[in-house]
Deep mutational scan, measured.
Amino acid sequence: VTTYKLVINGKTLKGETTTKAVDAETAEKAFKQYANDNGVDAVWTYDDATKTFTVTEMV
């Protein structure tokens, strides 16, 4: 189990959160659900070296 981080650069929601998951795909599903629940529709990137997902909402 690995800890993954999500950085949110949204128009109305900004911040960071983490989740523990067995792999990046599982973490991504959890983070996308979190973003969807909070109304963030954005572009996703992932950095495997830092285990960090970044979501940037387009203006």
Results as ranks from 00 to 15, higher is better:
Y4I: 02
T12A: 09
T17Y: 15
Q33N: 06
L13W: 15
V43N: 08
K29V: 08
K32D: 01
N38V: 15
E57Q: 08
Y34S: 03
Q33R: 10
E16Y: 13
K32W: 06
T26W: 05
Y46M: 00
D23G: 02
E57S: 07
T19Y: 14
D37Y: 13
D48I: 06
V1E: 12
K51M: 05
K5M: 06
V22N: 07
T19A: 07
M58D: 11
V22L: 10
V22H: 09
A27I: 02
E16M: 12
G39D: 07
L6A: 02
T54L: 05
D23A: 03
V55R: 03
T2M: 10
A42E: 04
D41W: 11
T18K: 05
K11I: 14
D47L: 02
N9D: 08
G15M: 14
L6I: 03
T56N: 07
V22F: 10
G10R: 08
K14Y: 09
F31D: 00
Q33I: 11
Q33V: 09
W44R: 00
A27R: 01
K20W: 11
Y34W: 14
W44G: 00
T2N: 10
A42V: 08
W44N: 00
F31V: 01
L6P: 01
K5N: 04
Q33E: 08
I8E: 01
D37H: 10
V43I: 12
V43P: 04
V22C: 09
T12D: 09
T12E: 09
A24Q: 11
T45S: 12
K14S: 11
T17G: 04
I8S: 03
E57P: 07
A27P: 01
K20H: 09
L6R: 00
A21P: 01
L6N: 01
D41N: 12
F31P: 00
V43M: 09
T12N: 12
T19P: 01
V22Q: 08
K5W: 12
G10Y: 15
A42L: 13
T45M: 07
M58H: 10
F53S: 00
K14M: 11
A27G: 00
N36M: 15
T56S: 08
T17C: 15
V43H: 09
T45Q: 08
